[in-house]
Design a protein around this nucleic acid. Structure first.
Length: 219
DNA sequence: CACCAGGCAAGTA
DNA sequence: TACTTGCATGGT
């Protein structure tokens, strides 16, 4: 079996065992972008509390959020953790949106993935995972999202080296998968769900993981 | 009580 | 360049 088929088999196994993830069905792309920043190194439940607060106050729109002071915004997103830092990062991102497209972020769709990625990475507070999450989940363009679970799961299965960095891991998947945003979306979601349940750093439950139960000796 | 979550950037040597 | 540290709430 070639490596592309194997990577697809991982997807099929996770998908059939866990079912659809329905990740980031945000009401607007902007909600998804804000969520991507708020969930950095943070449980989604906490990030979502901040999203709900912003939504309740009708502030989940770039033009309105931009008018908030940094400390006002910080208080609103407090449950998301790192709230002062994230308020600063959101302000940086809003400043970017204002300069880049006068808050009409849909006009950013004209850019290629790499162009958009470079622009996003230029914002202080947006790193590779957040940039790829925005491109994939807000703009629905096929930029594969890597996270710590991606690295851990596939390293434990002996498919990637421990020392591979973010971009090497991203390339690993993008070279082996068809450029399908729907596939990339669900693939990343499934990896996180599998990782949380069976591939924790401490006391992983590998013997109960569908990837170990259904994929033995396939390489 | 300890540990960690859908990271990133700045500081240090 | 390579390694360390700060950021912070809320759930288990």
């Amino acid at each position: 079996m070639n490596s592309s088929s194997l990577i697809l088999k991982y997807f099929d196994t996770m998908s059939s065992q866990l079912g659809p993830s329905n990740w980031w069905p945000g009401e607007t792309p902007f909600e998804v972008m804000v969520g991507a920043i708020l969930t950095q190194n943070t449980n989604w439940q906490n990030a979502y509390k901040a999203i709900l607060t912003l939504k309740d106050k009708s502030l989940l729109e770039p033009g309105k959020m931009y008018l908030l002071t940094e400390s006002e915004l910080a208080e609103l997103i407090r449950p998301a953790g790192y709230f002062r830092l994230k308020a600063k990062r959101l302000k940086n991102f809003l400043f970017f949106l204002k300069n880049e497209c006068a808050f009409n972020y849909s006009t950013l769709e004209k850019y290629s993935i790499n162009q958009l990625r470079t622009k996003l990475l230029g914002v202080n507070g947006i790193g590779p995972e957040t940039a790829d999450s925005i491109i994939l989940y807000a703009f629905q363009k096929p930029s594969f999202v890597v996270d710590s679970y991606t690295h851990r799961i596939f390293n434990r299965h002996g498919l990637v080296h421990q020392e591979m960095d973010y971009h090497e891991l991203r390339d690993f998947f993008m070279l082996r998968l068809p450029e399908d945003p729907v596939l990339f979306n669900e693939y990343h979601a499934l990896i996180v769900r599998v990782g949380k349940k069976w591939c924790q750093k401490k006391s992983p439950k590998c013997s109960e993981c569908p990837l170990n139960i259904y994929l033995q000796n396939q390489e």
